[in-house]
Amino acid sequence: MSAGPPKPPHRNPVLERPLKVTLSFTDSCNLNCRHCYADCSATPKPDELSAAEWCGILDRLEADGVIGLYIEGGEPLHRPDFLDVLRHAAGRFHIQLRTHGTLVTPEMAAVLRQECRIATLLVDIMGPDAATHDATTGVPGSFERATAGITAALAAGIDTQMLTIMTRWNVAGLQGWVDLAARLGVATVGILRPYPLGRLKRRWAEASLSLDEMHAALEALRLPPGMRLMQSWHPNNGNCCWQTAAIDARGNSIGCAYLREYVHLGNLREVAFLDTWNHPLHRELRSGAVTEACGDCASSQGSHGGCRSTAFAFHGRWDAPDPFDRATNNGVDLRVLPKHPV
């Protein structure tokens, strides 16, 4: 019996220009998180883009067809000139701002809502209580200030979501974390996989769970009525690369914030943004050309191949299967991070 015609290779949609861009605005922060992907310092590094440079990049992104911004850090609100940049973007882009929340006072929330017109505030809360959260951030009182920030943002009418990164440090408190979100009035929460980047990479063996432990934690959660949970494990493990790009605090085009230690497509002080979008490596990352992929996740997400950052971290190849997906884990122990040359 004939095997039939060969199936065409799976590919992601090909965009000539990106729709969304992540801006990793600064590598500075007023907290000292033990998992910090950006390895932040208390003051901005001297080679970070200035506010004027960021505004010039925003103008370029708008002209190039970018319509959505996801802004993170470090902690963007920690840099004094951030609001100048955010005001420059206001009304021109759909803006999602990720923050740890401690600087979101009622006055700041009003500015974010009325002057900067952000669409969504995403606040990282690393546990259900001050003991867990403050142990992670290294700053006593940060939990109280962060939850007060959520309250202020909700009171100002901002769509406010709560995020956390699942680690061994907080997995036992995930249900309490969900209950905390409900008490605060947060309707959408996101539980994110850990990425072996920055400080978390150096403490990976201590922090990471096995894939089974991660799924067991997710499956044990009881959500209150009306609450929406975002999680990117199977069957929601898409390949976000196809529609997005990212720029780090020094103006490097890096494809995705989670590729920050692996990918350098060019610096926007020297090259045009769209030239980096068309870089051969960026095209490869977006393509969905992988040796093994999960059909369930491709169906649910409309993209193919799973996360390229975690695939590369564990296999050292851009076309490798994503070990955070049950269908393509192939026995990889996520608690053991292999050493690959970057």
């Binding site: 949609p13 090909v14 965009l15 319509i67 959505g68 882009f93 759909h94 952000i118 669409a119």
Partner: peptide, 15 residues
Amino acid sequence: ELGVCVVFAAEEARL
């Protein structure tokens, strides 16, 4: 490429 148009409504900050 996808046969769609994404619209940003600034007044509502929605896509």
